[in-house]
């Protein structure tokens, strides 16, 4: 196909194809020794990476699946798609939150099984919103915002390397991420426009949550895991620009949701 031939990383397609083809074979094997690989969460992971790692953990806890956390410095090099986190079950590697959710669904564990088709569409829509809009906002703040980059991002990326990589790698990565933002038409946005988008995302999620316990009613779904991962990361990560946190603080039900999920799934 066209993209495979012209893409810069053909081997990644090959690997993910291999993983995809082995998925169906291994899907019914037992859930033993599930390992979730993440970067060092306190020293290395960036805002959006932390959010995804936390979302995956929340998902396992909501689904009642036992897992062990393994923090490694080079997870993005091991991961089949180059993104964190990834799950290792027996010999299968599954990367990223959506990939893990699909994989677990193939094993018959679904948090959203009770929803109707229309509700499912709404849930997917909100997951897209978190995955696309909220993540782009986080990537923008982490890489594009100069002060955040120089004070936080570059030192976290460099934390697991030695000189001279500590100087080179953050710059290379920054160029790559700004290229990514540029392709999404995000690189030219001003901070105000980004915050406006963030406000829209929070407002939308807040009114979907309403006074319910979870996004889709009184039972947790995959969307709640993802939402909790991102909101908790935004609330607890100390960044030079507090605008994102201040925006979030306007939405009380989102804050209540975060504390509720934390209490129910992480503090037992």
């Amino acid at each position: 196909m066209a993209t495979t031939s012209s893409s810069s990383t053909p081997h990644r397609h090959l690997i993910s194809d291999l993983v995809a083809s082995t998925l169906s074979m291994n899907a019914d094997s037992e859930w033993i020794d599930a390992l979730l690989f993440t970067p060092f969460l306190t020293e290395q992971a960036l805002l959006y990476e932390y959010a995804d790692c936390l979302a995956a953990q929340t998902f396992f806890r909501m689904a009642g699946l036992p897992y062990q956390l393994r923090q490694r410095p080079n997870v993005d090099f091991i991961s089949p798609t180059g993104k964190v986190p990834f799950l290792k079950l027996n010999n299968v590697l599954v990367a990223e939150f959506t990939g893990i959710v699909d994989f677990v669904a193939q094993k018959g564990v679904k948090l959203s099984a009770h929803l109707t088709e229309v509700q499912l569409a709404e849930m997917m829509a909100h997951m897209s919103m978190i995955d696309l809009l909220l993540r782009n906002i986080e990537i923008y703040v982490v890489w594009r915002h100069d002060e955040t980059f120089s004070k936080i991002t570059s030192s976290r990326v460099a934390s697991v390397f030695h000189w001279p990589l500590t100087v080179i790698l953050p710059r290379l990565k920054r160029r790559e991420m700004i290229g990514y933002l540029d392709d999404q038409d995000w690189a030219t946005k001003s901070m105000d426009e980004v915050l406006e988008a963030a406000d829209r995302a929070f407002r939308s999620l807040s009114s979907q949550l309403g006074s319910c316990e979870f996004l889709m009613g009184d039972k947790p779904t995959e969307a709640d895991a993802l939402l909790f991962g991102h909101l908790y990361s935004i609330m607890t990560t100390q960044l030079p620009c507090h605008d994102l946190q201040n925006l979030l603080k306007k939405y009380n039900n989102l804050l209540d949701f975060t504390t509720r999920v934390e209490r129910e799934f992480f503090k037992r």
Binding site: M124, A125, S128, M129, R200, S207, Q208
Partner: peptide, 14 residues
């Protein structure tokens, strides 16, 4: 309105 915003992202992503 919230759902419209969410579905706009859904279309963009999927």
């Amino acid at each position: 309105k919230a759902q419209i915003d969410a579905f706009a992202c859904f279309l963009q992503q999927r």
